[in-house]
Simulated scan of single mutants.
Amino acid sequence: MTTADLAQRFLDALTTRDIEQVMPLWHDDGVMEFPYVPEGSPSTFEGADAIRTTLASAFVQRKTMEFLDVRAYQAADPDLAFVEFNGKMTLQSGAPYNNTYIAKVVARGGKLLHFKEFFNPLVDLAAGNPREAENR
């Protein structure tokens, strides 16, 4: 499986909102990074336990998660891929949360090692910063 395929599997697993389907895709030393989170929100989660905690919290904060128009690009380096996608979600409040994303994905041994996600932080702020709420 290519890193681009692994990234697609990760996005597909996120739609289930089931942490037990998501975590087997992650390396124990994995890192999730969100460089553009609004002020007051953590931006980096290191290690499987931190990733599990933040994703489980995100699943509680979102009633639905769907990723559309996924375009994954495998780099010449077999452990590197880039992914563009749109997210369509419903927050627990019932408010919609739709954003566009680009992610740099690094794998090791067929598992996600680093997922660096870029998104429009103004959409986060307009939605009441759901990332801040999930990390309280």
Rank of each mutant, 00 (worst) to 15 (best):
V106Y: 04
D79N: 03
M65P: 08
N99I: 00
F34R: 07
T100Q: 14
E132P: 12
Q92N: 15
I19Y: 03
Y73P: 05
T2P: 05
L113K: 08
L55E: 13
A13D: 00
Y97N: 10
L80H: 14
F115G: 05
A13I: 05
E66L: 02
D18G: 04
Y36R: 14
D79Y: 01
V22D: 06
A56P: 05
A72F: 04
T44A: 12
P24A: 08
F119W: 06
T3N: 13
W26C: 13
Q92I: 10
A127Q: 06
Q92R: 13
L122D: 14
L91V: 02
G87M: 04
L91I: 03
F34V: 09
T3R: 09
A72R: 00
R9W: 12
V60N: 13
T2G: 10
L6Q: 10
A7G: 11
A76H: 10
G128S: 06
Y73E: 07
T64W: 00
D124S: 13
P24R: 00
L14A: 05
A76N: 07
D18N: 13
V22S: 04
A127G: 05
Y36D: 11
L14S: 03
F59N: 00
M89T: 10
T15R: 09
M89K: 01
L68P: 02
L125S: 10
L113G: 09
L112A: 00
G109S: 03
K104T: 12
Q74F: 08
Q74K: 02
F85K: 04
P78C: 00
A76C: 04
R52E: 15
T53C: 10
A127L: 11
G87V: 06
T16M: 04
F45M: 03
W26L: 08
T64C: 04
Y36I: 09
D12V: 09
T90W: 02
A76P: 06
M1Y: 07
L55A: 10
D49P: 12
P78H: 01
E117V: 06
I102D: 01
G110T: 10
R17N: 04
N120Y: 11
D69C: 05
M32V: 13
P121G: 13
T16K: 00
A107V: 02
Y36P: 06
A7Y: 04
M23A: 02
M1H: 11
L6F: 03
G109K: 02
P38D: 10
V37Q: 14
D49M: 13
L11F: 01
A7N: 02
A72E: 00
T53A: 14
G110A: 05
A56E: 12
N98L: 01
N135Q: 15
Y97A: 09
G40N: 12
G94Q: 08
T2E: 11
P35F: 11
A95E: 15
E20S: 09
E134V: 05
G87H: 00
T3P: 12
A50L: 13
A4T: 02
